[in-house]
Amino acid sequence: MHVKSLTGFLLLAQKVHAAQTVLRFGCSQVVIERLDPLVNPGANPSPHVHQVHTLQNAFNALIPAESDVSQLANCTTCSFSEDLSNYWTANLYFKARNGTYKRVPQIPNRFLDGEVGGMTIYYTSPYDGSKSTAFKPGFRMLAGNADQRATGGVTKWNAICFRCYNAKNFGGDDRAPCSDSKVDSVSLPTKACPGGIRTTIRFPTCWNGKDLDSPDHMSHVSYPATKTFEENGPCPATHPVKLPQLMFEVIWDTASFNDKSLWPADGSQPFVFSTGDSTGYGQHGDYVFGWQEGVLQKAMDAGCFGASCKALKTQAFTAANKCAVPDTVREPVEGWIPRLPGQV
């Protein structure tokens, strides 16, 4: 095991209530393709490329509504082997001065070796020590808006932000995400980032208590009525059930793209999401719950912290990385390509 300076984890540890649970674990990326069973169910291909961190047999163009994916899958790329959820986000690409694109890889940001690309997942219980209700089988939701290109939206709840690392190994910066406007931004950084770009996506933490999904995949859940989750903001009366805070953390390895001779001639930032978004305001995350029955609630009640939890089973990445999903779209998404897949 080797310890890295990572993404607010140490600061978070100082603030955690004695009875609070903070699960923090890695999931290897399993496939890069244009499928989106949440927003574009049944479409093959969907409009833009996603990086998927998920489980075999359960990620497809269509996941039937209210399906318990933990009953459909037989493996997971995550270090907690009982977590068979689907997690996916839009990919980041570099657009060179000549107009070609190349996918930006992810830096594994875990305490344990072996993760391939991927992201770090957080499940956090309320900071005031109160209980949260784990998601139910069939639950799904969306955070962010792929079409957003200006300030506003979920950024008011510190839901999405970026950080530019000035050095390798996360720049020695362990402040919590979205905590400091001097180092965090709600749009993509405009300067070269030698240590990469971190993006964090926080999901809603309040639920109406009855619907597993909604037509827009957002209306059945809500952010706090006032303040933020970290500030113990109360849930609105329409969505009274407290959920764990789910957060995605991805660190994009931009170091190999910092040659300014490749950047646009006007010096503007060259990174663009697979949606065609060069602002970053359209960053978003998709979630389909898939923990095995009762396991997440048990962990949230146990006061677990980090990537080890006596209430949960773990697996090495030598096993997790054997979990595979076939690429059913079969189009170029890697290397230098003339345009973003699915984009004109």
Rank of each mutant, 00 (worst) to 15 (best):
D147Q: 14
Q245L: 14
L92Y: 04
V116A: 12
G285D: 03
A319V: 14
A319D: 14
L92F: 06
E66N: 12
E293M: 00
R103T: 08
H239R: 06
R149E: 11
K136S: 08
S5L: 10
N91W: 01
D211I: 07
L243V: 12
P177I: 01
L92R: 05
Q148N: 11
V186I: 15
G42H: 09
A90Y: 00
S132N: 03
E249K: 01
N57K: 13
E33V: 03
L188Y: 06
S125C: 05
K313H: 08
K310S: 15
K95E: 12
A13R: 15
T133P: 01
R34G: 14
F257D: 11
L11W: 11
M141N: 10
V49S: 12
K191I: 09
F9P: 00
V3W: 03
A73E: 03
M1K: 05
G285C: 02
S222C: 11
H48W: 15
T328G: 03
A65F: 06
T7N: 14
P338F: 02
G144L: 02
C78S: 14
G172R: 00
W336V: 04
P137K: 02
L212S: 11
T100W: 10
P338S: 05
K182C: 00
T228G: 01
A302N: 09
P37T: 08
G118K: 09
R339E: 04
L11Y: 13
M247Q: 15
R103V: 12
F248I: 03
L11E: 15
H53I: 12
R97W: 04
K191Q: 11
F305A: 13
A43I: 00
A43L: 12
P189T: 08
S81W: 02
C206M: 11
Q148I: 04
G144F: 02
R198F: 00
P224L: 03
S268V: 02
N232Q: 10
G114S: 12
R140Q: 13
F203S: 06
Q245V: 00
Y87K: 04
W291I: 10
P137C: 01
S274A: 13
Y127S: 11
G171W: 11
S70R: 02
T77P: 05
Y281L: 05
A159T: 07
Q106I: 03
R97Q: 15
F317I: 09
K4Q: 14
K156C: 00
Q269A: 15
V325K: 02
M141A: 07
D68F: 04
G280K: 01
D113M: 08
V154Q: 07
H220P: 13
S222T: 09
V272A: 06
N60T: 14
N258E: 14
Q283I: 05
R175I: 02
G144M: 04
I63R: 01
A320Q: 10
S70W: 04
D301N: 14
D266V: 09
N91C: 15
N74I: 09
P37N: 05
M119A: 10
A61H: 07
C78L: 14
Q245T: 01
P194A: 05
R103N: 13
P332I: 07
G280W: 05
L84D: 02
V295A: 08
G42Q: 11
V344W: 03
Y127A: 10
L55S: 11
A134P: 14
S222K: 13
P64E: 07
T89Y: 08
